[in-house]
């Protein structure tokens, strides 16, 4: 049963026609062309589809699109400035070599953003806990942890 819903997407009010069975992941990709939201496991285990909703990281593959109604959704496309200036977390990921194949990167950056917005000075353990739901097959995580830690220092 399709219905129109309204929500905030990367700072802008948007509307979308969604079915009760639609997942936020597919609505973001198919209706808004936000291909930084990746589908991989489809069961909440890999974190590639992570987005931030009302300040909290969630996996959009397990999030009913209908639940986005009235909420604020941030995808990786919403982080850089309109002129293309990257977010400090994105800069740190590049600088520290935390991006290899890139498939997990949007999810890891968003998990990092949700963490740093709440806790600007996290311990290494807190960083590792925050990204425990984001699988990376390339980096071995060390560079990602380093990048997040570096971004925290840069912001504060």
């Amino acid at each position: 049963m399709k219905r129109m819903i309204e929500f905030e997407l990367n700072g802008q009010q948007v509307t979308a026609e969604v079915d009760g069975g639609d997942l936020l992941l597919s609505v973001l990709r198919d209706q808004f062309d936000l291909y930084g939201v990746k589908e991989s496991c489809g069961a909440g285990e890999c974190g590639a589809c992570t987005v931030i909703i009302d300040g909290r990281a969630v996996t959009s593959c397990l999030y009913p699109a209908m639940e986005a109604e009235g909420r604020s959704v941030t995808t990786i496309e919403g982080l850089a400035q309109p002129d293309g200036t990257l977010h400090p977390i994105q800069e740190s990921f590049i600088e520290k070599g935390a991006v290899q194949c890139g498939f997990c990167t949007p999810g890891n950056v968003l998990s990092a953003k949700a963490l740093l917005d709440k806790n600007p000075d996290p311990s290494e353990q807190e960083i590792r806990t925050a990204i425990a739901g984001n699988l990376c097959r390339c980096t071995g995580y060390h560079q990602i942890v380093e990048a997040i830690s570096h971004a925290a220092g840069r912001k504060s």
Partner: peptide, 9 residues
């Protein structure tokens, strides 16, 4: 339990 994303949902 789960991960941060899972615990958030």
């Amino acid at each position: 339990m789960g991960s941060t994303q899972m615990r958030n949902m």
